[in-house]
Write a protein that binds this DNA or RNA. Structure first.
Length: 805
DNA sequence: CAGTGAGCGAGCTTCCGCTTGACTT
């Protein structure tokens, strides 16, 4: 018999709270939502006021059963799910799923996990806010309708298995439009003047605020400087203040961890999860900038102890985001006096980042003195050079934390040094003056984290979904995280030194990218289709507009059925009229030109197997067939040139014959290769698939055979499919396409053919890529083996749950 | 790691938000 049952969303939270409440309270977790719409297409009765059917999610059946039992025994059940729309819905679903009655049920909320906050919440319970629940239901149902009506349209018109949704389709759109913006971008060049002076053994760096459009103008300017003298005309000192950034939210944590630690957003979240579970940090899925009073006190104490009283400045930050629901605190250490949180390197690094950011947010401003020196040129009264320097007068928060930025171009380096001592009227001597050609840059491609930032700014998605959204659009083949080598670009530098002007051409690397998001051809085609036929849902402001309506529902000013009805009428009409769109119209086909050799047209298209180019058209009269070639990695339908396309038709090419079989050279996903007798041989970088000779190919094949023979431990003459090999991780058995580890205590030398076959039989099939031929042949065998391997634990729980049913 | 690029039709896919593990390499 228990007196009080408290239900929260997270088990880690439950543990902490139980400690605050004493023995009359049992605190359990629901592990998030316990019920949802079923997976099938009839979850919503659209005809009858969008009536939803809910089912207990399969992975929550045990949780619900356990909670039901405890709730029955308890005198009072306290529903303490999060204080936001989803949390309210969780509480409501719990009352339904656990059959709770109003008399013994209380709804409580708190936004920080501190003893005071919990005690306070218990003393001020309320009922469930059905308006807020209805707003959540409207959100859920709208998302289901959009996703489950739109995705099938893509299956029919473009490719099966594709997906679309309120959040992911906008994320893809952002990446697609950014890519096109970069494509269209034309870099403009200008000349930047910089000068170095010698001042009492030190260097004074100065630059001309204005830039010159052409080399001629820059040349003229330098020409006029020949023989000039340079004088400090003005010195201006200005105090500057820098203020610390607020403590982390999910999105800012992902951004900083990406820029400073090079973590992917998923990596950041899983490391943060471990820190949270071990009690080192507060909850990591939050959009709030708030710190509890206790946290502010804790930070203050630590700052006083480590840096002194003058470094303390208590601050409260207000969110600028309209979509923020602020059900939690900002991300912070649970104990500011702890600098070490884990022996795991990445956990410790992320913890330090969180610690520093939270500590810095409660520290004093940095005080800086900025000095600007204006340098006159005796021969040109209208042009002045400028030198700026900064001196930190008081470090303040800079002592622990400097926020990084997305545009980390060293060209406009923010950190400036001190100027050498100068006085007005002083003449400085020129060491050299440069006119360097600089180019404007296009907008940067998104990183995972900067895409999250953008989505958050637009109010799209939630802290709990940022990381999953980023991985969904990659899994669906819309977006690829990739690195690219840049291209060399020449630029001009004019140097004025000792009254002589010289000109030099240098090169720089431009357009190199590291771990950036690139849209695939599929993304382009799908996006264009959605923009044309469903402009409403893919509009950047769609979420903002429906959110405003959800708010009205939450405030009791609107019926959720009415809102959905209004939306659905127009939306469904578009779904229906999309039936008549022909598939050919959406293939993204583009004519890229004519082959000068054959004067046939070259087309770029998106096909069932990906993007390809086509030379010539099918002609039923002459029986002529077109030539096809798949695009390579890094080539895209929208940007491939005629020249590149013609190159593609040259491969695969027959190099020669060897042992009565043809050797062909081509380029595959892993690079260029030679194919011979259905085996593949990678070409080294030194060999060009277009140039490689028969002799070189033969050498390659023989070298590979020799290397293979060296790592072979055993072969069986009765069955050539079976081999025992020496691999990177030790010996293993190959049976057909299956690789099998050799169990401990077995000498690879002594293995018999039968033993090898038995071992292979006992090893589960590697999951193939969606081929459905396999599916039919293997389900029983696969099941048997996985069960055997999974051991008794899984088998036991499985049979338990099935008998319960 | 290739080749494929017509069409039919079986039976599949899909959303967003809340939460953790349980898997494998």
């Amino acid at each position: 018999m228990i007196k009080n049952l408290v239900i929260v969303e997270s088990p880690a939270k439950a543990k902490t709270i139980e400690g605050y409440l004493g023995k009359d309270f049992v605190v359990k977790s629901s592990f998030g939502h316990v019920r949802d719409l079923p997976k099938d297409n009839n979850a919503i009765d659209i005809e009858h006021g969008f009536k939803p059917t809910y089912v207990v999610s399969s992975d929550k059946r045990e949780v619900v059963a356990q909670l039901k039992k405890l709730a029955k025994e308890a005198e009072i059940v306290w529903l303490a799910s999060d204080d936001d729309r989803e949390g309210e819905a969780i509480s409501w679903h719990l009352t339904e799923a656990l059959n709770l009655n109003d008399q013994k049920t209380r709804r409580i909320v708190f936004r920080e996990i501190t003893k005071n906050a919990i005690i306070n919440a218990i003393s001020t319970p309320r009922g469930i806010d059905m308006d807020l629940v209805n707003a959540q239901q409207a959100r859920r149902i709208l998302d289901r309708i959009v996703g489950f009506e739109l995705s099938p349209v893509l299956w029919k018109k473009i490719k099966t298995g594709l997906s679309a949704g309120r959040v992911q389709s906008v994320a893809v759109r952002l990446v697609v439009e950014r890519e096109r913006e970069i494509d269209r971008f034309n870099a403009e060049a200008s000349f930047k003047i910089t000068a170095q002076f010698d001042v009492q053994g030190k260097t004074l760096e100065a630059e001309l605020p204005a830039r010159f459009k052409t080399e001629d103008e820059a040349q003229t300017f330098l020409q006029k400087c020949v023989g000039a003298s340079y004088t400090i005309e003005n010195l201006e000192k200005k105090p500057l203040k820098r203020t610390p950034a607020p403590p982390f939210t999910t999105s800012t944590l992902q951004q900083e961890a990406s820029r400073k630690l090079y973590f992917s957003v998923a990596q950041t979240m899983s490391i943060a999860q471990r820190l949270y579970e071990s009690g080192k940090i507060s909850y990591m899925r939050t959009d709030s900038l708030n710190l509890s009073d206790e946290a502010i006190q804790g930070a203050t104490k630590e700052i006083q102890r480590s840096f002194g009283e003058s470094f303390v400045k208590q601050r409260r930050f207000k969110t600028k985001s309209a979509s923020a629901q602020e059900a939690h605190e900002a991300i912070r250490p649970t104990d500011f006096s702890q600098m070490v949180a884990s022996s795991d390197r990445n956990e410790q690094r992320l913890y330090e980042l969180i610690w520093k950011r939270a500590i810095a947010s409660q520290m004093a401003d940095a005080e800086i003195e900025k000095t600007t020196a204006t340098i006159g040129i005796s021969t040109q009264a209208d042009q002045k050079l400028q030198a700026t320097g900064e001196v930190i007068k008081f470090e303040g928060f800079l002592k622990v934390y400097i926020e990084s930025r997305d545009d980390e171009d060293s060209a406009d380096e923010d950190v400036k040094g001190m100027l050498p001592p100068l006085s007005i009227g002083q003449e400085v001597s020129l060491r050299q003056m440069l006119a360097t050609q600089r180019y404007t840059r296009p907008a940067a491609r998104y990183t995972e984290a900067s895409l999250v930032k953008k989505l958050e700014e637009m109010g799209i998605g939630r802290p709990s979904t940022y990381a999953p959204t980023i991985s969904t659009i990659q899994k669906r083949g819309y977006v690829e995280k990739d690195s690219r080598d840049g291209k060399e670009r020449p630029y001009q530098v004019l140097t004025l030194k000792n009254d002589q002007i010289s000109s030099q051409q240098k090169t720089e690397i431009t357009g190199a990218e590291k771990a950036k998001l690139f849209p695939t051809d599929m993304a382009m085609v799908v996006n264009d289709f959605l923009v044309e036929h469903f402009p409403n849902v893919i509009d950047y402001s769609f979420t903002a507009r429906v959110e405003a309506e959800f708010d009205e529902i939450a405030h009791g000013q609107k019926e959720w059925e009415d809102m959905l009805d209004q939306f659905y009428k127009k939306f469904h009409q578009r779904i229906e009229s999309s039936e008549s769109i022909s598939r050919a119209d959406v293939s993204g086909a583009r004519e890229i030109g004519t082959d000068p050799a054959t004067s046939k047209t070259v087309l770029a298209k998106l096909g069932r197997f990906g993007p390809y180019v086509q030379l010539g058209e099918e002609n039923t009269e002459t029986g002529e067939k077109p030539l096809y070639a798949s695009l390579r990695k890094g080539q895209f339908l929208e940007t491939i040139t005629l020249e590149d396309a013609l190159e593609l038709f040259k491969l695969p090419r027959v190099v020669g014959t060897y042992e009565d079989k043809e050797m062909t050279a081509a380029i595959g996903r892993f690079g260029p290769y030679i194919r011979h007798n259905s085996k593949f041989y990678s070409l080294p970088k030194t060999l060009d698939p277009l140039q490689v000779t028969a002799q070189e190919a033969v050498n390659l094949i023989e070298a590979k055979r020799k290397a293979d023979a060296e790592k072979t431990i055993k072969t069986f003459s009765e069955n050539e499919e079976v081999q025992v090999l020496n691999g990177r991780y030790g010996p293993y058995i190959v049976v057909g396409k299956k690789n099998v580890k050799i169990p401990k205590g077995k000498e690879p030398q002594d293995l018999t053919l039968q033993e090898c076959l038995d071992l292979a039989e006992a090893t589960p099939e590697k999951k193939g890529r969606g081929g459905f031929k396999k599916k039919e042949a293997s389900p029983t065998a696969a099941k048997k083996t996985t069960k055997a391997k999974a051991g008794t634990k899984k088998a036991a729980t499985k049979s338990k749950s099935s008998t319960k049913k």
